[in-house]
Amino acid sequence: MSTTGRGGDASSDEATDRRDRDADGRARNARPRDGLGRPLPYGAAGVERQPEGVVRPPERSVVEAQELLAAGKPFHAHEVFEDAWKSGPAEERALWRGLAQLAVGLTHAARGNLTGGVRLLRRGAAAVEEWASETGRRRPYGMDLAGLAGWARELADDVERDGASVDAGARAPRLRG
């Protein structure tokens, strides 16, 4: 039995050692990324990463996510929504998760994963509408949830019909209508 690692040779150990891991061996995801969150080769110039685990007031989350969406960085906007989903009050988690799904749907549609994009756009639209109907809140933090759901469904229909990826910045939603 080999004691040199998963691949059974010294080169596998060297490759494992070069991976960006924390002290517990979990991936830290420090690899550079492009504006749509796709990994780039180590050493390449990527866009500035969105810090993870940031606790922001909800209004700040909306503003930061909108800026990222308008800049054609829906993957990074999804990170902002995910932080709000994980750190916010339990009664708002479904809202922020739905918004994260919308951002990831746009990400996939822009990357060319059309099936995944359409699926997530529709799932996110349903999630924000369901949250609004359950809570009676149609414009939390000034966001137009009905408008966002309509945007997502229209984009999903366009992607399905055209069978082509989209420009994330040009097709970015306005969170506050």
Rank of each mutant, 00 (worst) to 15 (best):
M143F: 07
A71K: 10
R171K: 15
D144P: 00
G5R: 08
V62A: 03
G142N: 09
D22S: 11
D22L: 11
G112M: 11
E79H: 07
S2I: 07
A146Y: 08
L99E: 02
A170F: 12
R60M: 09
A10Q: 12
A168E: 01
A15I: 12
E154G: 14
T107H: 05
L120W: 05
L114P: 04
L106T: 02
V159K: 02
N113C: 09
R49A: 15
T107R: 03
L69N: 03
Q50S: 15
S133I: 03
A90M: 05
V128Y: 00
D20A: 15
S2C: 10
D9A: 13
A109R: 01
E52Q: 13
A70F: 03
V62S: 01
A84T: 06
G112N: 12
V159Y: 00
A23S: 15
E48I: 06
R153V: 12
A27W: 09
A132M: 08
G112E: 11
G72V: 04
E59S: 14
R18E: 15
T16C: 04
A71S: 15
A77R: 03
R21T: 14
R6F: 14
N113P: 05
G105R: 00
A94G: 15
W85T: 01
R174N: 09
K73I: 01
L69A: 08
A146I: 06
E160H: 10
L114I: 11
P58M: 07
G136W: 11
R28I: 10
L120N: 07
D167E: 11
A90Y: 11
Y42W: 14
M1R: 09
L114M: 12
M1I: 09
V128K: 00
A23H: 11
A172Q: 08
L36I: 00
G37Q: 00
R18F: 10
D158F: 05
E59Q: 13
F81G: 01
G7I: 05
L155I: 12
D83P: 03
H78V: 01
T115M: 09
R123V: 14
A168V: 05
D13I: 06
L145Y: 07
V63K: 12
E59M: 04
A23V: 13
A126K: 10
S12T: 12
S11Q: 14
R19F: 06
R111F: 08
G177R: 01
A172V: 10
A126R: 13
A71F: 07
E14A: 15
P39A: 11
L148Y: 02
L175E: 00
V47M: 08
D24H: 12
E130M: 03
A65V: 07
V55N: 11
D22P: 10
L155F: 09
E67F: 06
P89M: 08
A27Q: 10
P32M: 08
L120Q: 12
G35Q: 07
Y42G: 13
R31S: 13
A170G: 02
R161L: 14
A152N: 03
F75N: 02
D34W: 04
A65I: 11
A110F: 02
G177C: 02
L175R: 00
